[in-house]
Computed example of a mutant assay.
Amino acid sequence: MKVLVPVKRVIDYNVKARVKPDQTGVDLANVKMSMNPFDEIAVEEAVRLKEKGVATEVVSISVGPTQAQETLRTSLAMGADRAILVQTDQDLEPLAVAKVLQAIIAEESPDLVILGKQSIDGDNGATGQMLAAILGWAQATFASSIEVSGAKAKVTREVDGGLQTLEVDLPAIVTADLRLNEPRYASLPNIMKAKKKPLDVKELASLGVDTAPRLKVLKVTEPPKRGGGIKVESAADLVMKLKNEAGVL
Protein backbone atom coordinates (compact mmCIF):
# COMPACT_ATOMS: atom_id res chain seq x y z
CA MET A 1 0.00 0.00 0.00
CA LYS A 2 1.34 3.42 -0.98
CA VAL A 3 0.71 6.41 1.28
CA LEU A 4 1.01 9.97 -0.04
CA VAL A 5 1.65 12.76 2.47
CA PRO A 6 1.42 16.42 1.37
CA VAL A 7 3.55 18.76 3.50
CA LYS A 8 3.74 22.55 3.57
CA ARG A 9 6.56 24.96 4.38
CA VAL A 10 5.30 27.57 6.86
CA ILE A 11 6.66 30.06 9.38
CA ASP A 12 7.90 28.16 12.42
CA TYR A 13 5.24 28.07 15.13
CA ASN A 14 7.69 29.58 17.65
CA VAL A 15 8.19 32.70 15.53
CA LYS A 16 5.97 35.78 15.84
CA ALA A 17 4.70 36.69 12.39
CA ARG A 18 5.25 40.27 11.19
CA VAL A 19 3.09 42.12 8.69
CA LYS A 20 4.74 43.90 5.76
CA PRO A 21 4.75 47.72 6.05
CA ASP A 22 2.52 48.00 2.97
CA GLN A 23 0.04 45.48 4.47
CA THR A 24 0.17 43.24 1.40
CA GLY A 25 1.00 40.13 3.40
CA VAL A 26 3.23 38.54 6.04
CA ASP A 27 6.94 39.37 5.99
CA LEU A 28 8.92 36.17 5.32
CA ALA A 29 12.35 37.78 5.02
CA ASN A 30 14.94 36.25 7.39
CA VAL A 31 12.24 34.25 9.17
CA LYS A 32 12.72 30.65 10.32
CA MET A 33 10.56 28.26 8.32
CA SER A 34 9.60 24.69 9.12
CA MET A 35 7.12 21.96 8.27
CA ASN A 36 3.49 22.66 9.14
CA PRO A 37 2.96 20.90 12.52
CA PHE A 38 -0.19 19.07 11.37
CA ASP A 39 1.65 17.79 8.30
CA GLU A 40 4.47 16.60 10.54
CA ILE A 41 1.90 14.50 12.41
CA ALA A 42 0.67 13.13 9.07
CA VAL A 43 4.21 12.09 8.10
CA GLU A 44 4.68 10.38 11.45
CA GLU A 45 1.45 8.42 11.04
CA ALA A 46 2.40 7.30 7.54
CA VAL A 47 5.82 6.15 8.76
CA ARG A 48 4.17 4.24 11.62
CA LEU A 49 1.90 2.48 9.14
CA LYS A 50 5.00 1.44 7.23
CA GLU A 51 6.69 0.21 10.40
CA LYS A 52 3.61 -1.91 11.15
CA GLY A 53 3.87 -3.50 7.73
CA VAL A 54 0.62 -1.94 6.55
CA ALA A 55 2.21 0.52 4.12
CA THR A 56 4.96 -0.43 1.69
CA GLU A 57 5.94 3.07 0.55
CA VAL A 58 5.58 6.59 1.94
CA VAL A 59 5.83 9.47 -0.54
CA SER A 60 5.87 13.08 0.62
CA ILE A 61 4.98 15.98 -1.66
CA SER A 62 5.18 19.73 -1.32
CA VAL A 63 3.88 22.52 -3.54
CA GLY A 64 5.99 25.64 -3.18
CA PRO A 65 9.29 27.40 -3.85
CA THR A 66 12.74 25.84 -4.14
CA GLN A 67 13.26 26.31 -0.39
CA ALA A 68 10.52 23.73 0.23
CA GLN A 69 13.16 21.08 -0.54
CA GLU A 70 14.31 21.53 3.06
CA THR A 71 10.83 20.63 4.31
CA LEU A 72 10.77 17.55 2.10
CA ARG A 73 14.17 16.44 3.37
CA THR A 74 12.79 16.67 6.90
CA SER A 75 10.08 14.21 5.89
CA LEU A 76 12.73 11.93 4.37
CA ALA A 77 14.73 12.08 7.60
CA MET A 78 11.59 11.07 9.50
CA GLY A 79 11.17 7.97 7.37
CA ALA A 80 9.51 8.84 4.05
CA ASP A 81 10.86 6.87 1.08
CA ARG A 82 10.55 9.45 -1.69
CA ALA A 83 9.79 13.15 -2.03
CA ILE A 84 8.23 15.21 -4.81
CA LEU A 85 8.42 18.99 -5.15
CA VAL A 86 5.97 20.81 -7.40
CA GLN A 87 7.94 24.01 -7.79
CA THR A 88 6.18 27.37 -7.92
CA ASP A 89 6.63 30.83 -6.46
CA GLN A 90 2.87 31.40 -6.43
CA ASP A 91 1.02 31.44 -3.12
CA LEU A 92 -1.64 28.92 -4.09
CA GLU A 93 -5.13 28.80 -2.63
CA PRO A 94 -6.45 25.53 -1.14
CA LEU A 95 -8.48 24.67 -4.26
CA ALA A 96 -5.41 25.12 -6.48
CA VAL A 97 -3.35 22.91 -4.16
CA ALA A 98 -6.07 20.25 -4.28
CA LYS A 99 -5.96 20.32 -8.09
CA VAL A 100 -2.17 19.96 -8.08
CA LEU A 101 -2.44 17.00 -5.70
CA GLN A 102 -5.08 15.47 -7.95
CA ALA A 103 -2.59 15.55 -10.84
CA ILE A 104 0.14 13.95 -8.72
CA ILE A 105 -2.25 11.29 -7.42
CA ALA A 106 -3.11 10.39 -11.02
CA GLU A 107 0.60 9.65 -11.57
CA GLU A 108 1.40 7.98 -8.23
CA SER A 109 -1.87 6.04 -7.61
CA PRO A 110 -1.64 5.99 -3.79
CA ASP A 111 -4.07 3.97 -1.68
CA LEU A 112 -4.20 6.50 1.14
CA VAL A 113 -3.50 10.23 1.40
CA ILE A 114 -2.81 11.62 4.88
CA LEU A 115 -2.42 15.37 5.32
CA GLY A 116 -2.65 17.87 8.14
CA LYS A 117 -6.12 19.14 8.95
CA GLN A 118 -5.01 22.76 8.48
CA SER A 119 -2.03 25.02 7.87
CA ILE A 120 -0.93 27.39 10.61
CA ASP A 121 0.00 30.26 8.28
CA GLY A 122 -3.27 31.09 6.52
CA ASP A 123 -5.23 28.83 8.91
CA ASN A 124 -6.73 27.11 5.87
CA GLY A 125 -8.43 23.82 6.64
CA ALA A 126 -10.18 22.78 3.44
CA THR A 127 -7.55 21.24 1.15
CA GLY A 128 -8.24 17.66 2.25
CA GLN A 129 -11.99 18.01 1.85
CA MET A 130 -11.63 19.66 -1.58
CA LEU A 131 -9.23 16.96 -2.73
CA ALA A 132 -11.66 14.20 -1.68
CA ALA A 133 -14.50 15.93 -3.52
CA ILE A 134 -12.46 16.35 -6.73
CA LEU A 135 -11.30 12.72 -6.67
CA GLY A 136 -14.63 11.30 -5.55
CA TRP A 137 -12.84 9.46 -2.73
CA ALA A 138 -14.02 8.76 0.80
CA GLN A 139 -12.77 11.15 3.45
CA ALA A 140 -12.31 11.13 7.22
CA THR A 141 -11.25 14.43 8.74
CA PHE A 142 -9.63 15.46 12.06
CA ALA A 143 -8.37 11.94 12.78
CA SER A 144 -7.14 11.13 16.29
CA SER A 145 -6.64 7.42 15.45
CA ILE A 146 -6.16 5.48 12.21
CA GLU A 147 -6.38 1.72 11.75
CA VAL A 148 -5.94 0.21 8.30
CA SER A 149 -7.01 -3.35 7.54
CA GLY A 150 -7.23 -4.68 4.01
CA ALA A 151 -9.13 -2.29 1.78
CA LYS A 152 -10.72 -0.37 4.66
CA ALA A 153 -9.61 2.15 7.25
CA LYS A 154 -11.16 2.91 10.64
CA VAL A 155 -10.71 6.50 11.69
CA THR A 156 -11.60 7.86 15.11
CA ARG A 157 -12.27 11.59 15.35
CA GLU A 158 -13.23 13.91 18.17
CA VAL A 159 -16.67 15.51 17.99
CA ASP A 160 -18.60 17.68 20.43
CA GLY A 161 -20.34 14.66 21.96
CA GLY A 162 -17.20 12.53 22.37
CA LEU A 163 -15.53 10.19 19.85
CA GLN A 164 -16.84 9.16 16.45
CA THR A 165 -15.46 6.16 14.55
CA LEU A 166 -15.79 6.03 10.77
CA GLU A 167 -15.00 3.18 8.41
CA VAL A 168 -14.00 4.24 4.91
CA ASP A 169 -13.11 2.28 1.81
CA LEU A 170 -9.68 2.81 0.32
CA PRO A 171 -8.51 4.82 -1.51
CA ALA A 172 -9.35 7.60 0.90
CA ILE A 173 -8.32 11.01 2.20
CA VAL A 174 -7.57 11.40 5.91
CA THR A 175 -6.67 14.66 7.67
CA ALA A 176 -4.61 14.51 10.87
CA ASP A 177 -5.49 16.16 14.16
CA LEU A 178 -3.07 17.02 16.96
CA ARG A 179 -3.89 13.98 19.10
CA LEU A 180 -3.15 11.47 16.36
CA ASN A 181 0.46 11.02 17.51
CA GLU A 182 3.66 12.66 18.73
CA PRO A 183 6.07 13.19 15.81
CA ARG A 184 9.55 11.75 16.24
CA TYR A 185 12.76 13.73 16.15
CA ALA A 186 14.82 12.84 13.10
CA SER A 187 18.18 11.33 14.06
CA LEU A 188 21.41 12.93 12.84
CA PRO A 189 22.33 9.93 10.61
CA ASN A 190 18.90 10.06 8.96
CA ILE A 191 19.21 13.82 8.45
CA MET A 192 22.57 13.32 6.73
CA LYS A 193 21.15 10.54 4.55
CA ALA A 194 18.14 12.70 3.63
CA LYS A 195 20.46 15.46 2.37
CA LYS A 196 21.89 13.07 -0.22
CA LYS A 197 18.60 11.61 -1.43
CA PRO A 198 17.43 12.90 -4.83
CA LEU A 199 14.14 14.77 -5.05
CA ASP A 200 11.66 14.54 -7.90
CA VAL A 201 11.20 18.19 -8.93
CA LYS A 202 8.34 19.13 -11.25
CA GLU A 203 7.43 22.56 -12.55
CA LEU A 204 3.86 23.60 -11.82
CA ALA A 205 3.30 24.58 -15.45
CA SER A 206 4.11 21.03 -16.60
CA LEU A 207 1.04 19.66 -14.80
CA GLY A 208 -1.42 21.76 -16.82
CA VAL A 209 -3.49 22.64 -13.75
CA ASP A 210 -5.68 25.74 -13.45
CA THR A 211 -4.27 27.53 -10.40
CA ALA A 212 -5.75 30.98 -11.09
CA PRO A 213 -6.59 32.74 -7.80
CA ARG A 214 -10.24 33.22 -6.93
CA LEU A 215 -9.66 35.42 -3.90
CA LYS A 216 -8.04 38.84 -3.60
CA VAL A 217 -6.30 39.92 -0.42
CA LEU A 218 -7.18 43.54 0.26
CA LYS A 219 -4.85 44.00 3.21
CA VAL A 220 -3.23 42.17 6.10
CA THR A 221 -3.11 43.78 9.55
CA GLU A 222 -1.92 42.71 12.97
CA PRO A 223 -4.58 42.01 15.60
CA PRO A 224 -5.31 44.89 18.00
CA LYS A 225 -3.12 44.95 21.07
CA ARG A 226 -4.78 43.66 24.18
CA GLY A 227 -5.44 46.20 26.91
CA GLY A 228 -4.35 45.73 30.50
CA GLY A 229 -6.58 43.96 33.01
CA ILE A 230 -8.00 45.30 36.27
CA LYS A 231 -8.60 43.84 39.70
CA VAL A 232 -12.00 43.91 41.39
CA GLU A 233 -12.81 43.62 45.08
CA SER A 234 -15.81 41.32 44.80
CA ALA A 235 -18.07 39.39 42.47
CA ALA A 236 -20.59 42.23 42.67
CA ASP A 237 -17.96 44.68 41.38
CA LEU A 238 -17.14 42.29 38.55
CA VAL A 239 -20.79 42.03 37.51
CA MET A 240 -21.17 45.81 37.69
CA LYS A 241 -18.14 46.46 35.48
CA LEU A 242 -19.18 43.81 32.98
CA LYS A 243 -22.63 45.34 32.79
CA ASN A 244 -21.93 49.06 32.92
CA GLU A 245 -18.41 49.41 31.49
CA ALA A 246 -17.86 46.42 29.21
CA GLY A 247 -21.51 46.20 28.16
CA VAL A 248 -21.46 42.41 27.86
CA LEU A 249 -24.29 41.68 30.31
Rank of each mutant, 00 (worst) to 15 (best):
V97K: 05
R82P: 06
D89T: 13
D111Y: 10
A83V: 11
Q129H: 09
L112M: 13
T127R: 02
Q102Y: 09
V100T: 02
E107C: 07
L76S: 09
G136H: 02
Q118R: 13
E108A: 14
E147W: 06
A96H: 04
V97Y: 05
A77H: 10
E107K: 15
D89F: 09
N124T: 15
G116T: 11
I105S: 12
I134P: 03
D121I: 13
L112F: 14
A77N: 13
Q139M: 01
E108K: 14
E147Q: 11
I134K: 05
P94S: 03
S109W: 05
Q118C: 07
A106P: 11
L131F: 04
L95C: 01
L92T: 03
E107A: 13
A83E: 04
A126C: 09
Q87R: 15
A98F: 05
L101M: 10
L135G: 00
A80D: 12
L131T: 00
G125W: 04
S109Q: 15
M78I: 13
A80W: 11
A80S: 15
Q87W: 08
V100Q: 04
A133Y: 03
E108P: 13
E107H: 09
L112C: 10
T88L: 07
A83W: 06
G125P: 04
K117D: 04
I84G: 03
E107V: 08
Q139A: 04
L76C: 12
L115Y: 09
P110S: 07
A126Y: 07
A106K: 15
K117T: 09
R82W: 11
